[in-house]
Amino acid sequence: MSKEWPLWEVFIRGQHGMSHRHVGSLHAPDAEMAIKNARDVYTRRNEGVSIWVVEARHIAASSPSEKGPLYEPSESKVYRHPTFFDIPDEAGHM
């Protein structure tokens, strides 16, 4: 029985100086083929200027059950946003 090609996650940088963004995944025997396949599968309409691929098994992800402990602490820290502070109009643009 044949061995299935590993799964790769594909990240593409769009045209406009953006960060690489996850666009999907594909199967390929190695990194070189993964990039070639990603070109065909995810950039048929000029969607990108650069491709990253990483084997899916190398990605560590947070778990949905950790949502509370991970993100709730920042909810109470409203002073991290500039709109928290009232600056008088007289002080000019800040």
Binding site: S2, K3, W5, P29, D30, M33
Partner: peptide, 8 residues
């Protein structure tokens, strides 16, 4: 598929 996998 097998050949490319073996090569990799």
């Amino acid at each position: 598929r097998d050949g490319l996998m073996a090569h990799a």
